[in-house]
Design a binder for these strands. Structure first.
Length: 414
RNA sequence: GGACAGUUGGCAGAGUUGGUCGAAUGCACUGGUCUUGAAAACCAGCGAGGGUCAAACCUCCCAGGGUUCGAAUCCCUGACUGUCCGCCA
């Protein structure tokens, strides 16, 4: 949630920044006027309440002293009607504002480039050079099936399209990757956390998936529970409604979970293979930080995920997302794209975001600085998407006979 | 899933014949006195959100509704926790 006070103090600046995220000016203006409306409604209501409280106290005194209360009672009753009306108005104003503001995305950082979609993202740097093949490299689904690592048809049989099954070395590689990733993150100071893969509405509102993106989520019928689309949701919401001691920050966490996404709106994209599945494994990093720490930590998280790819000897590049590709909650994001020789292109394998206080305000995550309670900054990033890492390994480590060489760093995990 | 019990400030724990209770007390924490330093002792402060230059003021005693001039206190619904039973990896 954006800070509505900013809109009050510096409407022009904030308005311009939000327009970069395609928020219409009318919406921003409406946001401000609805906020003004709420403030007026609230102060009118509170004033009437103060009067009522005062009269109620008098009421007690009169009764104790045996005074006549009929006149007072009449005044109190009249005021009560007024209160009910004002309360109703206040509630309506609250609801209108809240439903509006919950759908407003985060304000992008100034260094986020303008752009329409992923084509306008800006490459920061390449790491490692894509390998030269003396043969035509195959795509991962071909390699996966030839080596009986991945079975796409049987995944469909068990569930539906965009589900797959890993067999033998394929399944073992997944497990090895998960262990490798968690150990790698732990060495960099991230505490390993194991969390629920079902969360309630409140948690999803806290991190920004709801109310706007319900169509992307799998919901449990008859329950206030959803399958998580990323471990970012439970890991960040661990601290919802809490006030953390300043000296405990930053809290750096890593966790491995399955992730579930409906991929609504992705019809026809990556229909083949395991790039885009309804269920996939991911190792995630989440950091809860003081505002003044967050930029440095963001860089560290990018470096960490990038180093992980380097350790796996996977060529990749770092890309700065443009405004059009930036997620709802992020104020800035850097994607890591891994080289896929079979596809002859770089594909997203990690996404690291700083949401600043956007999620913290929604989830009410604060810390105590002296006597003041301040909102924390929350950051999240994948390190890495396991399925896509396996894809990258298959394609980059393939041999002419179709076999796949095991990366050195994974050998001790197999 | 069935039966009963409970849900109060960081923790513990009063308050349930409705009024001056945002809430006793203890611990923890912060500042001060004392001390070479520490401990102990003593003094003071110490929940959150909104609002304000600062106040005043408003809200919050699990959540939502109701009764009442007035509710932490009474009534209803829900969530959660505990215990016993059932079931189970």
């Amino acid at each position: 949630m954006i800070d509505l006070k900013l809109l009050q103090t510096d409407f022009e600046t904030i308005s311009k920044k939000l327009q970069r995220k395609n928020v219409p000016v009318v919406t921003i203006e409406s946001l401000q006027s609805k906020n003004e409306l709420l403030k007026k409604a609230r102060s009118a209501f509170e004033e009437a309440q103060a009067t009522q409280n005062e009269m109620s106290k008098l009421f007690g005194t009169y009764k104790r002293e045996g005074k006549d209360i009929s006149e007072l009672k009449a005044k109190v009753d009249a005021n009560k009607l007024k209160i009910n009306r004002l309360q109703q108005e206040q509630r309506e104003a609250e609801e209108v504002l809240s439903s509006l503001v919950m759908g407003i995305p985060n304000i992008p950082d100034d260094d986020v480039p303008d752009g329409k979609d992923e084509d306008d993202n800006v490459e920061i740097k390449k790491v490692l050079t894509p390998p030269e093949f003396t043969f035509v490299p195959k795509e991962h689904w071909e390699l996966g099936e030839a080596n009986t690592w991945i079975d796409f048809e049987r995944g469909v049989k068990l569930a539906k399209s965009r589900f797959s099954v890993s067999f033998g070395m394929g399944a073992r590689m997944e497990r090895a990757l998960i262990n490798f990733m968690l150990d790698f993150n732990r060495d960099r100071g991230f505490v390993e956390v194991s969390v629920p893969e079902l969360v309630n509405r409140r948690a999803l509102e806290g991190t920004g998936q709801l109310p706007k993106f319900e169509d992307d989520l799998f919901k449990i019928e008859g329950e206030d529970l959803f399958l998580i689309p990323t471990a970012e949701v439970p890991l960040t919401n661990l601290f919802q409604d809490e006030i953390l001691p300043a000296e405990e920050l930053p809290v750096k966490m890593t966790g491995f979970t399955a992730c579930f996404r409906k991929e609504a709106g992705s019809a026809g994209r990556d229909t083949r293979g395991m790039i885009r599945q309804h269920q996939f494994y991911k190792v995630e990093m989440v950091t809860i930080a003081k505002p003044e720490q967050s930029d440095k930590i963001f860089d560290e998280m990018v470096a960490s995920a990038s180093d992980m790819l380097t350790a796996l000897e996977l060529p990749h590049r770092q890309v700065r997302l443009c405004t059009g590709d930036l997620g709802f909650s992020a104020s800035k994001t850097i994607d890591l794209e891994v080289w896929l020789p079979g596809q002859d292109s770089y594909r997203e394998i990690s996404s690291i975001s700083n949401t600043r206080d956007f999620q913290a305000r929604r989830a009410k995550i604060r810390y105590k600085e002296g006597k003041k309670n301040r909102l924390v900054h929350t950051l999240n990033g994948s390190s890495l998407a396991v399925g896509r890492t396996l894809v990258a390994i298959m394609e980059n480590y393939q041999n002419e006979d179709g076999s796949i060489t095991i990366p050195d760093v994974l050998k001790k995990y197999l």
